[in-house]
Computed example of a mutant assay.
Amino acid sequence: MSYEDLEVWRRSARLSATLYQQMKDLRDFGFRDQLTRSGLSIPSNIAEGYERDSDKEIARFLTYAKGSAGELRTQILIGIEAGYVEKPDGQQWADEALQLGRMLGALIQRHKRE
């Protein structure tokens, strides 16, 4: 199975692209950079893990991706409070980041058992 076949990778890649599109005009470059980097880190770490040779390595990189999902959710929630992110969009993105984290947690457990 390729990482591109994983729903969690497809959804995280879509979320990352959305963040880049929606935040492109934000003038706080530091915040924008941090938010888009954490979003990009999720599918990137999934891909890197699946390109490794062992379940242990896959699980390790999936753990990094899960951490990035938590980081992203936090940044989105702060962005809402700071007025950088519209609440309806931000809540949808934060909910998606939470779901991605849960999906990654289940996938991590599967690779730890194999």
Rank of each mutant, 00 (worst) to 15 (best):
M1T: 08
M1H: 08
S2T: 01
E4R: 15
D5F: 04
L6T: 01
E7P: 04
W9I: 02
W9K: 11
W9P: 13
S12I: 12
L15N: 08
S16R: 02
S16H: 12
S16D: 13
S16I: 01
A17M: 13
L19I: 15
L19C: 06
Y20A: 06
Y20K: 13
K24P: 01
D25A: 14
D25P: 02
D25V: 05
L26R: 11
G30S: 10
R32W: 00
D33T: 08
Q34S: 11
L35Q: 02
R37W: 01
S38P: 07
S38N: 08
S38K: 04
L40F: 10
L40S: 13
S41H: 05
S41Y: 05
I42H: 10
I42P: 11
P43R: 09
S44E: 03
N45L: 03
I46R: 10
I46S: 11
A47D: 07
E48K: 14
Y50G: 06
E51P: 00
D53P: 02
S54F: 10
K56N: 11
K56F: 08
E57I: 08
I58D: 07
A59D: 01
L62D: 00
L62C: 08
L62E: 01
Y64T: 12
A65Y: 04
A65P: 09
A65G: 09
K66R: 15
A69E: 04
A69Y: 06
L72A: 14
R73T: 03
R73L: 02
R73P: 07
T74C: 11
T74W: 14
Q75R: 09
L77N: 13
G79D: 10
I80R: 11
I80P: 04
E81S: 15
E81K: 15
A82C: 07
A82E: 14
G83D: 04
G83P: 08
Y84D: 06
V85T: 06
V85S: 05
E86Q: 15
K87E: 15
P88S: 10
P88D: 07
P88R: 09
P88K: 10
D89G: 01
G90C: 13
G90M: 06
Q91A: 06
Q91K: 12
Q92P: 02
W93A: 07
W93P: 04
W93Y: 15
A94E: 10
D95C: 02
Q99H: 09
Q99K: 15
Q99Y: 00
L100M: 04
G101N: 08
G101M: 05
L104N: 10
G105M: 03
A106W: 00
A106P: 03
Q109K: 14
R110F: 06
R110T: 14
K112P: 01
